[in-house]
């Protein structure tokens, strides 16, 4: 029997995970943002599908928020910031790409081994969604560690957030998902636009965290 609801949700979840891997090996900031946009689109689709399939209309709000903020507003704004501030368009990852991918695959294995045994009583969809989203969270962490550039760290942080929203959407009937996704978005928006990119630029003429980190409080 073909269960279209299950298959579609699974496909969209897997797409989010795939884009997480794609984020790991991007060298150019613009293509990083493009891949992130695809991830946000896939997440928005997953949320909308869940809202439709399980008849939970509040998830449409989550889908719409993800679509407008993460697939449109934030990538556009980051594009502009990169152009206007003449930020270096290519980033050298701190770890080699081969090594990063191996680490990524092991993180996915880890999350599957971690989640599947403890959630035997939950439905198949919830279990797999949870394993997928934990993988996305861990890959986001890996990306934040392997890139020392402020823009890629923010993109890494937002992909962690995408993984969390995927998890929250996948668990049937979870309340407050909308409020939590709003709280997260507000935080990211404030941090990115209010403070850091402009201030860091103003002070350091660079967005490379390696250079910034030499300004240690106790370097003297």
């Amino acid at each position: 029997m073909i269960d279209i609801g299950y298959d579609a949700a699974h496909l969209l979840g897997a797409l989010v995970l795939m884009t997480s891997f794609a984020l790991l090996y991007q060298r150019r900031l613009f293509s990083l943002l493009n891949v992130f946009t695809v991830q946000a689109l896939a997440l928005s689709g997953a949320a909308a599908w869940q809202a439709y399939a399980h008849d939970e209309p509040h998830l449409y709000i989550t889908a719409l928020l993800t679509l407008t903020l993460k697939a449109i507003a934030i990538p556009v704004a980051l594009h502009r910031i990169i152009q206007r501030l003449h930020i270096e368009r290519t980033v050298e990852p701190a770890l080699g790409i081969g090594l990063t991918m191996v680490a990524g695959v092991s993180l996915v294995t880890l999350s599957i081994l971690l989640v599947l045994p403890v959630t035997e009583n939950a439905t198949a969809l919830t279990r797999e969604d949870l394993a997928l989203s934990l993988s996305v969270v861990l890959l986001g962490l890996l990306m934040m560690i392997s890139r020392r550039n402020a823009v890629s760290q923010v993109v890494g942080f937002m992909s962690i957030e995408n993984g969390l929203i995927l998890a929250a959407v996948g668990v049937a009937g979870m309340p407050l998902v909308v409020e939590m996704s709003i709280a997260f978005s507000v935080m990211v928006a404030f941090i990115i636009f209010g403070i850091f990119l402009f201030q860091i630029r103003e002070r350091f003429e660079t967005l490379d965290m390696r250079k910034i980190e030499s300004f240690r409080g106790e370097s003297d």
Binding site: M144, A150, Q153, F157, I191, I195, F196, Q199, I200, E202, R203, F204, M209, I212, E213, F215, R216, G217
Partner: peptide, 14 residues
Amino acid sequence: RTAASIEAAWKYFI
């Protein structure tokens, strides 16, 4: 808005 305070806030945020 000093270099050190922005670095501290960034580290804190991350």
